[in-house]
């Protein structure tokens, strides 16, 4: 370890931080060191970072175009030219999977951006205010929860029309209720804690308490929950793609690719298996990261 990095570590672990920024960085460092002590979590993070890297640099990484057909080379088994083989239209499966990472990642990102705020707002308001607001919000939430998420997503997509954007909206609509329930449970227990009472005794308005004190304290568990739900989101997206209600051909969405592969399952196993494995690894990675995050963000560790 060089002296510079030693100095940095000391700066990050000193017991006397000397500015708000210093304290925040130390806090991030503590979470990171706890996360880093979990090898499975780190492995998951590596896979996700790899996914992000691929999604960004795919034009330079993919050996072929994902759409270019070559009818002379259909259904070729994995070989030196096509590392993961080709599909029924002679398209390179590796290139299609690499390009598909963009779709998967955008589904994941957009769903999180929609789901987290809705779940957090609904849950915190219901939990903190209680009473009739809680009753109304929770009945609505339960309405959504009472259907299996894939069925609900199917219904939405059927109503909105089958394409990727509608699939993302449909998935988001099915994913916020559990987050809201979680945020409500957290808010309920936070509501009667002394440090919230202390803020009330400063004369703070209820809205200020929810926004500045309750919601930020709910965020870590919401992040963990969303990360753990990512696997489900990816699988639902793949499921919709598989059923032909998500991304439409020729877009290289992994679920849709598995769906096409099904037809050639017996004599060309690679067509369905390769995108299937991608789905497996990525959802597994999100699960591992979620588990590690849960331990790292748990304040009881401190």
């Amino acid at each position: 370890m060089s002296t510079a990095s030693k100095g940095l570590t000391a700066w990050l672990t000193t017991e006397e931080p000397n500015s708000a920024r210093h304290a925040t960085l130390q806090n991030i460092w503590r979470v990171w060191s706890r996360f880093a002590s979990n090898p499975l979590g780190v492995a998951g993070l590596v896979i996700i970072l790899l996914l992000v890297f691929v999604a960004v640099f795919v034009p330079w990484l993919a050996p072929y175009s994902p759409f270019e057909q070559n009818l002379r080379e259909t259904l070729m088994a994995p070989n030196g030219q096509h590392l993961l083989g080709t599909d029924e239209l002679g398209r390179d499966i590796l290139s299609r999977i690499l390009w598909g990472s963009r779709i998967t990642l955008s589904i994941v990102a957009i769903v999180s951006v929609i789901v987290a705020p809705i779940g957090l707002i609904v849950g915190c308001l219901a939990g903190y205010y209680g009473g009739w607001l809680d009753t109304i919000l929770m009945r609505v939430t339960e309405l959504f929860l009472s259907f299996p998420s894939l069925i609900l997503a199917l219904a939405f997509v059927a109503a909105l029309g089958p394409n990727l954007n509608n699939a993302i909206i449909a998935i988001a609509l099915t994913q916020w209720p559990p987050i809201a329930r979680l945020a409500r449970a957290e808010s309920l227990s936070l509501r009667n804690r002394d440090h919230i009472s202390a803020v009330r005794l400063m004369g703070a308005s209820s809205l200020h308490i929810v926004i500045a004190h309750i919601a930020p304290l709910c965020i870590p568990s919401v992040i963990v929950r969303i990360t753990l739900n990512m696997a489900g989101i990816i699988l639902t997206a793949a499921g919709l793609g598989f059923l032909g209600l998500g991304a439409q051909p020729p877009s290289p969405e992994w679920g849709a690719m598995v769906s096409t592969g099904r037809r050639f399952m017996l004599d060309s196993w690679w067509v369905g298996t390769m995108p299937g494995l991608s789905i497996l690894f990525v959802s597994l990675a999100f699960n591992l990261v979620g588990d590690a995050l849960r331990d790292a963000l748990d304040p009881r560790q401190e």
């Binding site: 002394d194 440090h195 202390a198 005794l201 304290l217």
Partner: peptide, 19 residues
């Protein structure tokens, strides 16, 4: 009222914002 009256709680760890 909230200026003139303040409270000190039993468990100071509980009474402070943890983050």
């Amino acid at each position: 009222f909230y200026r003139k009256v303040q409270m000190v709680f039993q468990d100071p760890y509980e009474a402070l914002h943890p983050r």
